[in-house]
């Protein structure tokens, strides 16, 4: 008798989100399967990996994660190019310099820098503000306007500021990162609200990525359940792709800062776990971990 594998099929499908434009555009999501269950449905887009570029010049980074970039950290354009040469699918630009608690760089300056990076590198850009919910409105609006039509992925939009950021994103042709604090109900609420301003194909969910040993299992559960609720139960408010922006969380732990090898494991294990949980887009800092993740995604390891 012929063996037939017991395969599941699901009614829901993750929305396909396009980042960037033209020949450089990159698509994420789109599948009707649980994470990495390529045998159960159509492989529309495999997960992608971004390397982080930070406009604060890698201030506070452990020396072993600065090392691959040591000549370029003062120049985001060169740094971004370096990331691409090291294998990143796309670039995640963190605008930590705009933090009012820190160097408080102006929205205009930040926007001009993002525009420059965008014009110099041929991959889609993810842009994160500093996380200050008031300043982020200014910064992300300025970035959205300066890069009108470039289809960046901009965030984080949170409960306190999503309306203004979604407006700037909608008016200038970008996508948005919907960020909630590791809570499924709040995540759905923000998605429902954003869906009044943007189509689901322009939204990416960021449920926050905690590092190994610092609550990673909570992030894992939220991502896993998001995917189940969207794909298995067909909840349309939970069918957007997921971003795991985990580099900063991992590299600020004492364990990652204490020792190179330990730091590498801290980031790779967190990333690999969140990949299994359902992340469609992973942001890491070390290029070796970027390579490792890509090999895993392509099924080589």
């Amino acid at each position: 008798m012929e063996y037939k594998a017991p395969l599941e099929t699901y009614t829901g499908r993750v929305k396909e989100v396009t980042l960037g434009k033209g020949a450089d555009a990159l698509k994420i999501g789109g599948g009707n399967i649980l994470p990495l269950h390529y045998f159960e449905g159509s492989v529309v887009n495999r997960p992608v990996v971004a390397l982080e570029v930070n406009d604060n010049g890698a201030a506070g980074w452990a020396e072993w994660v600065v090392e691959p970039y040591k000549d370029v950290v003062s120049d985001p354009v060169k740094w971004a190019r370096k990331c691409l040469s090291l294998g990143a699918d796309l670039i995640c630009l963190h605008l930590d310099s705009t933090d009012p608690q820190g160097s408080n760089r102006s929205a205009m300056e930040a926007a001009a820098m993002v525009k420059k990076v965008r014009s110099e590198v041929d991959v889609p850009l993810i842009v994160y503000g500093s996380g200050d919910d008031k300043k982020d409105v200014e910064v992300l609006t300025a970035v959205a306007e300066a890069c009108k039509g470039e289809n960046l992925l901009l965030g984080p939009a949170v409960k306190e500021n999503y309306e203004a950021i979604a407006r700037a994103v909608a008016e200038n042709g970008h996508c948005i990162i919907a960020q909630t604090p590791i809570d499924l109900n709040l995540e759905k609420e923000l998605n429902v609200k954003l869906l009044k301003q943007l189509p689901p194909e322009r939204i990416v969910i960021d449920p926050l990525s905690s590092a190994l040993g610092y609550g990673m299992e909570y992030s894992f559960t939220i991502m896993e359940r998001t995917r189940q609720i969207g794909v298995v139960f067909g909840d349309v408010a939970m069918q957007m792709p997921i971003i795991a922006d985990l580099g900063a969380e991992c590299w600020k732990t004492n364990q990652a800062r204490a020792d190179r090898e330990q730091g590498m494991h801290w980031e790779s294990i967190t990333a690999m776990s969140l990949l299994l949980a359902g992340a469609d887009l992973l942001v890491v800092r070390h290029p070796d971990n970027c390579r490792l993740l890509k090999e895993a995604i392509e099924g080589k390891i």
Binding site: L184, N185, K188, E189, V192, K193, L195, F233, D235, A237
Partner: peptide
């Protein structure tokens, strides 16, 4: 049958 959020009436 549907995941709760404070916006459950809006979705």
């Amino acid at each position: 049958e549907a995941l709760y959020s404070h916006a459950w009436l809006e979705s």
